[in-house]
């Protein structure tokens, strides 16, 4: 058999999307009561849960405290049942440490940490089901959870992955598209100011194509923003009605 045709001549991808179309996004905020903030997101078959604690006092050694801003502590993990084959995933393996680091960088750039000197903000994200774009789902979920916790940010952080296949940028890659092994670019964007919080790329991409791919990625991030904003507004409205105002 001759491999999979990731993009047909008619411009449809394997799952029937066009090149610039996102998967269906569904999200809920405030899913847990104990945590300060929490959110759940589905991007197609990728499902992620984010929980936020803080800002609170530094736990553990006090030496980590920063005198002028808050420490952002992240932890990324994947559920054992998140992939086709059940697999135990100990904390601190290379892949999740890297992801943790990326998340940390992303949110240090977005949260107004200088408002909370000598304190700590914890962000825990877990992938419940993995189908491509894990980092992006985590960022989007964490954004909603931070908002739910009421921590001030510069802007939403919206993330979306973009691949490049047959000279066309494909937005929001699914697992099969990722596994095809082409170049892949993950972008976390602050949509209003169009500032980039994080940009990661693996495998080689010719520099002539970079701009095209980047444009597609930021367009996709703005699309994600539209969806997240809707979710937040709906949630706030719901809370307001419950409070009876």
């Amino acid at each position: 058999m001759a491999g999979l045709e990731l993009l047909s001549d008619q411009g449809y991808r394997l799952d029937g999307r066009k090149a610039v179309e996102l998967r269906k996004i569904r999200a809920r905020m405030g899913v847990f009561a104990q945590a300060d903030g929490s959110a759940y997101i589905e991007q197609g078959n990728t499902k992620a849960l984010a929980v936020v604690y803080g800002p609170h006092e530094i736990r553990g050694s006090r030496s980590k405290a920063l005198h002028d801003r808050a420490v952002v502590n992240c932890q990324y993990s994947m559920a054992t049942f998140s992939t086709g084959e059940r697999k135990r995933r100990p904390h601190g393996d290379r892949k999740s440490s890297e992801m943790t680091l990326h998340l940390k960088q992303t949110f240090e750039a977005a949260i107004l940490t200088q408002l909370y000197p000598r304190s700590q903000i914890d962000i825990y994200v877990q992938i419940l089901q993995a189908d491509g774009g894990n980092y992006c789902a985590c960022v989007n979920a964490a954004t909603l959870a931070i908002m739910d916790a009421g921590i001030p940010m510069r802007d939403y952080v919206c993330a979306c992955s973009t691949g490049f296949i047959e000279d066309t940028p494909l937005v929001d890659l699914s697992y099969i598209e990722e596994a095809a092994g082409g170049p892949q670019l993950a972008l976390a964007l602050l949509p209003k100011s169009e500032q980039i919080a994080l940009l990661e790329m693996n495998s080689r991409l010719h520099e002539d194509h970079l701009e095209k791919v980047l444009d597609a990625a930021s367009k996709a991030c703005r699309d994600v923003y539209a969806v997240l904003d809707r979710v937040v507004r709906d949630h706030v409205q719901e809370v307001c009605t419950l409070l009876g105002e």
Binding site: L14, D15, G16, R17, N45, G84, D131, S174, I176
Partner: peptide
């Protein structure tokens, strides 16, 4: 035996 879950969008 591997279960593969794929989305399939109808338009």
């Amino acid at each position: 035996v591997l279960k593969i879950v794929r989305e399939h969008y109808l338009r």
